[in-house]
Design a protein around this nucleic acid. Sequence first.
DNA 1: ATGGTGGAACGTCCA
Length: 264
Amino acid sequence: MRIATWNCNSIRSRVDRAVAFLERHDVDVLALQETKCRDDQFPMMPFQAAGYDVAHVGYSQWNGVAVVSRVGLEDVEVGFPGQPGWGEPAEAEARALGATCGGVRVWSLYVPNGRSLADPHLLYKLDWLAALRDAGRGWLADDPGAAVALMGDWNIAPTDDDVWSVEYYAGKTHTSPQERAAFAGVVEAGFADVTREHTPGPGTFTYWDYTQLAFPKRRGMRIDFCLGSPALAARVEQAFIDRDERKGKGASDHAPVVVDVADV
DNA sequence: ATGGTGGAACGTCCA
């Protein structure tokens, strides 16, 4: 089974690219982030015509996550247990959606950006990741053999090799010790990055800013990951970043990450 | 190059 994750930065403006990506790489399950639409605005028909089912959650023009699958889409869950909200008063955001596809519990996750190190949004990001760590620990306690894939835009570059310039990101979000510790917390709860050994760095990225010719200058970050439970990680055969999807007119600022999981 | 990103309540926020 081939599973993938992609921050599409608006599904309405990139539905053709999304379907072409699924067909180009023969993808079975795709976790999407930043769909930037409400459920009633999601372009379902192109996916259905290509043979896929879709589960989506979106409350506004912000955030929005989906799981697209042609190998089943069961037990859809909006948000994970304990997921913090944002705003005053705090309200749930459309940043997490789980579904069981072909026997794998797939989560599409859009981790809060953080904005700046002094912004309350950074504390929200850290709280959100701590809650995800606790939820993940709970899932594995309930079923140590569960095949779980935590896929999405983590908005964290876990190592210095995951940014084009350590100096450029000094004092900014995505590389701070507290963010890296929050990411490590999810790993310590039992979820390993299953892509890195197949996509070695440095200089291997999944995101490039739209500005300043960052993509052709290869100035990017690795911030999109698939973190697998032990049972899932043991089945990973290969992985790659579809860098070509970042090319050309109308590309998202993120490239998809693709993971091949052996059948049991 | 009278621009310098792009996407979303089409005005201004978000990334």
